[in-house]
């Protein structure tokens, strides 16, 4: 059970934070279809930063537990770097959509094409292959939190095993950011104004709010979160390897945002659900659901009848299929920010 919760969180947390990235852009009135691309870019910059730091021995792993604090600082710093990279990359979208009043769907698509191309171009030059791995060691030995760091032992129970063992600090940073930014969106002057710009920019402008600035802010926050989310995804699900791909995760986050009706609490719920599906796809064969040492789903997939359907292919397909079905049921009720996707033109009233 601990494993299931941990693994679900591994997928749910980046989904959640990237979906929130979508919320900040769309609530300000800009459709950010480029979440996928920004994640790819953030993942690359994060991995590259770690690669460089390791190569130049800025951070050195010393006997595991002793300097785990330093290693956590290293992770936090990399998150910041990836976030800033994402924010800068998203400026391309902001410039096209806000200043040039471009078609936001095409602009976002362009970034989704640009990110993998750009990233792979450099990865090939840096690593002479199509993925960029850590310069030395692996993510688990460098960055994973273990209960032994806190002097805790096996017997310390469910809570410790689930939340303090074999987890990454990124999970908690993301959750904290998620809460803080949700409060920012709903309880502060900035949040009120941002949301007004996504609903009725003409109204906001008539009250002296600078719609351009607010939309830039929305997109930049969005880019930061998506870039950081991309790195978190690469760190926690693929051993800090950047390969110019996040397997449609950014698009899933968009879907999560829509199911969540652009509201943080609902998004958290939707992200957990999809995290569960993703977790099943990734590790159904090692899931011990009822704790009896038997891998139920693995056994099912080996069953001559059930295995025809309930196999790896099925679990990989599931998140996308479910999102399409949920989309079909929720689209009638969903309420997007009214002005999203429409370039703001001050001359128009």
């Amino acid at each position: 059970m601990s494993f299931l919760i941990r693994e679900t969180l591994v997928y749910a947390v980046p989904l959640m934070i990237v979906a929130l990235a979508g919320v900040f852009a769309e609530r300000s009135g800009i459709i950010n279809l480029a979440l996928e691309g920004i994640m790819i870019f953030g993942a690359f910059i994060g991995a590259f930063f770690i690669y460089e730091m390791q190569m130049n021995e800025v951070f050195v792993l010393q006997s595991g537990a002793a300097n785990w604090g330093t290693m956590q600082m290293f992770v936090l710093l990399t998150m910041l770097v990836a976030g800033i990279a994402g924010a800068i990359f998203s400026l391309l979208l902001a410039f096209a959509a806000i200043n040039l009043k471009a078609d936001q769907t095409i602009g976002g698509t362009a970034l989704n094409l640009l990110a993998p191309a750009f990233v792979l171009f450099f990865i090939r030059i840096i690593a002479n292959q199509d993925d960029l791995r850590m310069y030395r060691g692996d993510a688990a030995s460098w960055f994973m939190l273990k209960k032994s760091f806190f002097g805790l032992k096996e017997a310390d129970g469910f809570f410790v095993n689930t939340f303090l063992n074999k987890v990454y600090i990124t999970t908690y940073v993301c959750l904290l950011l998620f809460v803080l930014l949700s409060i920012l969106l709903y309880k502060t002057k900035f949040g009120l104004r941002l949301r007004a710009c996504g609903e009725n920019p003409q109204a906001a402008a008539s009250l002296g709010i600078n719609v351009f600035h607010m939309r830039y802010a929305g997109v930049i926050i969005s880019g930061f979160l998506a870039g950081m989310g991309g790195f978190v995804y690469a760190l926690t699900t693929s051993n800090c390897v950047a390969n110019g791909d996040v397997a449609g995760f950014g698009f899933l986050a968009l879907a999560v945002m829509i199911f969540g009706n652009w509201k943080p609490l609902n998004i958290a719920g939707a992200a957990l659900l999809f995290g569960l599906f993703k977790c099943m796809a990734a590790s159904y064969s090692t899931l011990d659901l009822d704790g009896n040492g038997q891998y139920l789903l693995l056994n099912l997939s080996k069953d001559p009848v059930w295995g025809k359907i309930l196999n790896a292919n099925f679990y990989r397909l599931l998140p996308y299929l479910v999102s399409l079905i949920v989309l079909a049921f929720t689209s009638k009720k969903s309420r997007a920010p009214k002005a999203e996707g429409i370039p703001y033109d001050p001359g128009k009233r």
């Binding site: 009120l192 104004r193 007004a196 609903e199 009725n200 109204a203 906001a204 309420r335 009214k338």
Partner: peptide, 19 residues
């Protein structure tokens, strides 16, 4: 054409920009 944000409350609309 009223410059109001449909999904905001009346009070939020009044204070918007002068919070």
């Amino acid at each position: 054409h009223f410059k109001l944000v449909d999904v905001f409350t009346v009070l939020d609309n009044i204070i918007l920009g002068a919070e």
